[in-house]
Write a protein that binds this DNA or RNA. Structure first.
Lengths: 108, 108
DNA sequence: CGGTATCCGCTAAGATACTG
DNA sequence: CAGTATCTTAGCGGATACCG
Protein backbone atom coordinates (compact mmCIF):
# COMPACT_ATOMS: atom_id res chain seq x y z
CA UNK A 1 0.00 0.00 0.00
CA UNK A 2 3.00 2.19 0.37
CA UNK A 3 4.69 1.22 -2.84
CA UNK A 4 1.83 2.09 -5.13
CA UNK A 5 2.00 5.82 -4.53
CA UNK A 6 2.70 7.92 -7.55
CA UNK A 7 5.77 10.06 -7.57
CA UNK A 8 4.87 13.73 -7.06
CA UNK A 9 6.45 16.47 -9.11
CA UNK A 10 6.86 18.72 -6.12
CA UNK A 11 9.86 17.84 -3.94
CA UNK A 12 8.00 18.89 -0.82
CA UNK A 13 5.23 16.44 -1.61
CA UNK A 14 7.81 13.78 -2.29
CA UNK A 15 9.23 14.32 1.17
CA UNK A 16 5.80 14.44 2.76
CA UNK A 17 4.89 11.16 1.17
CA UNK A 18 7.74 9.50 2.99
CA UNK A 19 7.82 11.30 6.31
CA UNK A 20 4.60 13.27 6.28
CA UNK A 21 3.44 11.26 9.22
CA UNK A 22 3.96 12.45 12.76
CA UNK A 23 5.07 9.04 13.98
CA UNK A 24 7.62 8.60 11.23
CA UNK A 25 9.34 11.83 12.13
CA UNK A 26 9.58 10.73 15.74
CA UNK A 27 10.93 7.32 14.76
CA UNK A 28 13.60 8.96 12.65
CA UNK A 29 14.47 11.35 15.44
CA UNK A 30 15.14 8.42 17.73
CA UNK A 31 17.07 6.41 15.18
CA UNK A 32 19.34 9.33 14.31
CA UNK A 33 21.21 8.65 17.54
CA UNK A 34 21.88 5.10 16.47
CA UNK A 35 20.50 1.61 16.03
CA UNK A 36 17.62 0.70 18.29
CA UNK A 37 15.63 -2.38 19.18
CA UNK A 38 11.89 -2.60 18.78
CA UNK A 39 11.27 -2.28 22.50
CA UNK A 40 13.54 0.72 22.75
CA UNK A 41 11.53 2.47 20.05
CA UNK A 42 8.31 1.59 21.83
CA UNK A 43 9.63 3.46 24.84
CA UNK A 44 11.25 6.41 23.11
CA UNK A 45 8.44 7.08 20.65
CA UNK A 46 6.09 7.71 23.51
CA UNK A 47 2.44 7.01 22.99
CA UNK A 48 2.72 4.76 19.98
CA UNK A 49 1.19 1.30 20.02
CA UNK A 50 2.86 -1.90 18.91
CA UNK A 51 0.70 -2.25 15.87
CA UNK A 52 1.25 1.27 14.63
CA UNK A 53 4.97 1.16 15.30
CA UNK A 54 5.27 -2.12 13.41
CA UNK A 55 3.38 -0.88 10.42
CA UNK A 56 5.32 2.35 10.18
CA UNK A 57 8.63 0.55 10.48
CA UNK A 58 7.61 -1.77 7.67
CA UNK A 59 6.62 1.12 5.43
CA UNK A 60 9.84 2.95 6.12
CA UNK A 61 11.81 -0.19 5.40
CA UNK A 62 10.00 -0.53 2.07
CA UNK A 63 10.83 3.09 1.30
CA UNK A 64 14.48 2.46 2.00
CA UNK A 65 14.70 4.72 5.02
CA UNK A 66 15.79 2.04 7.45
CA UNK A 67 16.90 -1.57 7.67
CA UNK A 68 15.52 -4.31 9.86
CA UNK A 69 17.88 -6.90 11.24
CA UNK A 70 16.52 -9.98 12.96
CA UNK A 71 18.77 -11.98 15.26
CA UNK A 72 17.70 -15.62 15.27
CA UNK A 73 17.95 -16.13 18.99
CA UNK A 74 15.75 -16.61 22.01
CA UNK A 75 14.46 -14.25 23.12
CA UNK A 76 14.14 -12.62 19.71
CA UNK A 77 16.00 -9.45 18.99
CA UNK A 78 15.29 -7.08 16.15
CA UNK A 79 17.30 -3.99 15.43
CA UNK A 80 16.39 -1.02 13.31
CA UNK A 81 18.99 1.19 11.71
CA UNK A 82 18.68 4.17 9.41
CA UNK A 83 20.01 3.73 5.92
CA UNK A 84 22.10 6.50 4.40
CA UNK A 85 18.94 7.79 2.83
CA UNK A 86 17.19 7.79 6.17
CA UNK A 87 20.12 9.45 7.86
CA UNK A 88 20.18 12.11 5.20
CA UNK A 89 16.91 13.39 6.68
CA UNK A 90 18.91 14.78 9.59
CA UNK A 91 19.00 18.36 8.25
CA UNK A 92 15.21 18.41 8.18
CA UNK A 93 14.99 17.16 11.73
CA UNK A 94 17.65 19.63 12.79
CA UNK A 95 15.74 22.57 11.41
CA UNK A 96 12.62 21.31 13.12
CA UNK A 97 14.48 21.20 16.42
CA UNK A 98 15.80 24.70 15.91
CA UNK A 99 12.42 26.08 14.96
CA UNK A 100 10.59 24.25 17.73
CA UNK A 101 12.99 25.55 20.31
CA UNK A 102 12.60 29.14 19.18
CA UNK A 103 8.84 28.89 19.00
CA UNK A 104 8.69 27.47 22.49
CA UNK A 105 10.86 30.24 23.87
CA UNK A 106 8.57 32.77 22.27
CA UNK A 107 5.65 31.32 24.24
CA UNK A 108 7.29 32.16 27.56
CA UNK B 1 -9.39 22.62 20.01
CA UNK B 2 -6.01 23.71 18.85
CA UNK B 3 -5.21 25.91 21.78
CA UNK B 4 -5.68 23.28 24.46
CA UNK B 5 -2.68 21.25 23.45
CA UNK B 6 -0.02 20.85 26.05
CA UNK B 7 3.41 22.13 25.23
CA UNK B 8 5.78 19.25 24.53
CA UNK B 9 9.27 19.15 25.95
CA UNK B 10 10.73 17.89 22.73
CA UNK B 11 11.27 20.61 20.14
CA UNK B 12 10.51 18.19 17.33
CA UNK B 13 7.13 17.43 18.86
CA UNK B 14 6.54 21.14 19.31
CA UNK B 15 7.12 21.64 15.60
CA UNK B 16 5.02 18.64 14.65
CA UNK B 17 2.15 19.95 16.70
CA UNK B 18 2.07 23.04 14.54
CA UNK B 19 2.96 21.74 11.12
CA UNK B 20 2.75 18.00 11.58
CA UNK B 21 -0.03 17.91 9.06
CA UNK B 22 0.59 17.32 5.41
CA UNK B 23 -1.77 20.10 4.33
CA UNK B 24 -0.23 22.68 6.61
CA UNK B 25 3.18 22.13 5.08
CA UNK B 26 1.76 22.63 1.62
CA UNK B 27 -0.08 25.78 2.67
CA UNK B 28 3.12 27.21 4.08
CA UNK B 29 5.02 26.28 0.95
CA UNK B 30 2.57 28.27 -1.11
CA UNK B 31 2.48 31.25 1.22
CA UNK B 32 6.26 31.51 1.37
CA UNK B 33 6.14 33.11 -2.05
CA UNK B 34 3.81 35.81 -0.81
CA UNK B 35 0.30 36.73 0.27
CA UNK B 36 -2.45 34.71 -1.33
CA UNK B 37 -6.22 34.77 -1.53
CA UNK B 38 -8.38 31.92 -0.43
CA UNK B 39 -9.20 30.88 -3.97
CA UNK B 40 -5.54 30.96 -4.94
CA UNK B 41 -4.71 28.59 -2.14
CA UNK B 42 -7.53 26.31 -3.18
CA UNK B 43 -5.84 26.01 -6.54
CA UNK B 44 -2.23 25.80 -5.49
CA UNK B 45 -2.75 23.37 -2.64
CA UNK B 46 -4.06 20.83 -5.07
CA UNK B 47 -6.52 18.29 -3.80
CA UNK B 48 -7.62 20.08 -0.67
CA UNK B 49 -11.29 20.81 -0.07
CA UNK B 50 -12.77 24.10 1.07
CA UNK B 51 -13.66 22.79 4.47
CA UNK B 52 -10.28 21.35 5.20
CA UNK B 53 -8.45 24.40 3.87
CA UNK B 54 -10.60 26.69 5.97
CA UNK B 55 -10.08 24.71 9.14
CA UNK B 56 -6.33 24.50 8.68
CA UNK B 57 -6.05 28.20 7.95
CA UNK B 58 -7.98 28.96 11.12
CA UNK B 59 -5.76 26.70 13.20
CA UNK B 60 -2.62 28.21 11.76
CA UNK B 61 -3.95 31.67 12.42
CA UNK B 62 -4.60 30.71 16.03
CA UNK B 63 -1.05 29.39 16.27
CA UNK B 64 0.32 32.67 14.98
CA UNK B 65 1.71 31.26 11.77
CA UNK B 66 -0.34 33.46 9.48
CA UNK B 67 -2.71 36.40 9.42
CA UNK B 68 -6.10 36.63 7.81
CA UNK B 69 -7.19 39.90 6.30
CA UNK B 70 -10.75 40.44 5.19
CA UNK B 71 -11.58 43.20 2.73
CA UNK B 72 -15.14 44.43 3.29
CA UNK B 73 -16.12 44.60 -0.31
CA UNK B 74 -18.30 42.82 -2.80
CA UNK B 75 -17.34 40.27 -3.88
CA UNK B 76 -15.53 39.41 -0.66
CA UNK B 77 -11.78 39.15 -0.65
CA UNK B 78 -9.67 37.46 1.99
CA UNK B 79 -5.93 37.38 2.01
CA UNK B 80 -3.60 35.15 3.94
CA UNK B 81 -0.07 36.13 4.79
CA UNK B 82 2.62 34.38 6.79
CA UNK B 83 3.67 36.05 10.00
CA UNK B 84 7.35 36.29 10.83
CA UNK B 85 6.95 33.12 12.82
CA UNK B 86 5.36 31.40 9.86
CA UNK B 87 8.00 32.66 7.53
CA UNK B 88 10.70 31.41 9.85
CA UNK B 89 9.64 27.90 8.88
CA UNK B 90 11.32 28.43 5.53
CA UNK B 91 14.52 26.55 6.48
CA UNK B 92 12.47 23.47 7.25
CA UNK B 93 10.70 23.66 3.92
CA UNK B 94 13.97 24.29 2.16
CA UNK B 95 15.56 21.18 3.59
CA UNK B 96 12.48 19.22 2.61
CA UNK B 97 12.82 20.46 -0.95
CA UNK B 98 16.48 19.55 -1.04
CA UNK B 99 15.89 16.12 0.38
CA UNK B 100 12.88 15.41 -1.81
CA UNK B 101 14.81 16.37 -4.91
CA UNK B 102 17.69 14.08 -4.07
CA UNK B 103 15.43 11.20 -3.17
CA UNK B 104 13.56 11.55 -6.42
CA UNK B 105 16.76 11.58 -8.44
CA UNK B 106 17.81 8.41 -6.69
CA UNK B 107 14.66 6.71 -7.94
CA UNK B 108 15.66 7.21 -11.56
C1' DC C 1 -15.94 35.01 -3.23
C1' DG C 2 -15.26 32.87 0.73
C1' DG C 3 -17.00 30.79 3.44
C1' DT C 4 -20.63 27.68 6.90
C1' DA C 5 -23.56 23.51 7.74
C1' DT C 6 -24.51 18.67 7.30
C1' DC C 7 -24.00 14.10 6.44
C1' DC C 8 -21.12 10.25 6.02
C1' DG C 9 -17.53 6.79 4.53
C1' DC C 10 -13.12 5.30 5.28
C1' DT C 11 -9.15 4.28 7.39
C1' DA C 12 -5.59 5.30 10.87
C1' DA C 13 -5.15 4.14 15.23
C1' DG C 14 -6.51 2.09 19.97
C1' DA C 15 -7.50 -2.02 22.92
C1' DT C 16 -6.89 -6.59 23.73
C1' DA C 17 -5.51 -11.29 23.15
C1' DC C 18 -2.45 -14.55 21.51
C1' DT C 19 2.23 -16.63 19.56
C1' DG C 20 6.98 -18.12 17.38
C1' DC D 1 10.90 -9.99 22.78
C1' DA D 2 8.72 -8.76 18.88
C1' DG D 3 5.57 -9.26 16.82
C1' DT D 4 0.38 -11.08 14.56
C1' DA D 5 -4.71 -11.22 14.65
C1' DT D 6 -9.18 -9.18 15.53
C1' DC D 7 -12.37 -6.08 16.69
C1' DT D 8 -13.73 -1.45 17.53
C1' DT D 9 -13.82 3.51 17.30
C1' DA D 10 -12.63 8.35 16.43
C1' DG D 11 -12.32 11.83 13.50
C1' DC D 12 -10.24 13.39 9.16
C1' DG D 13 -11.56 14.61 5.09
C1' DG D 14 -14.90 14.15 0.89
C1' DA D 15 -19.38 15.59 -1.15
C1' DT D 16 -22.94 18.59 -1.36
C1' DA D 17 -25.94 22.43 -0.33
C1' DC D 18 -26.65 26.89 1.10
C1' DC D 19 -25.48 31.85 2.81
C1' DG D 20 -23.58 36.92 3.65
Amino acid sequence: MNQEKKIPDCPVEMTLQLIGDKWKVLIIRDLLTGTKRFSELMRSVSGITQKVLTSHLRNMEADGLLTRKVYPEVPPKVEYTLTETGYSLKPILDSMVTWGTNYKNRLD
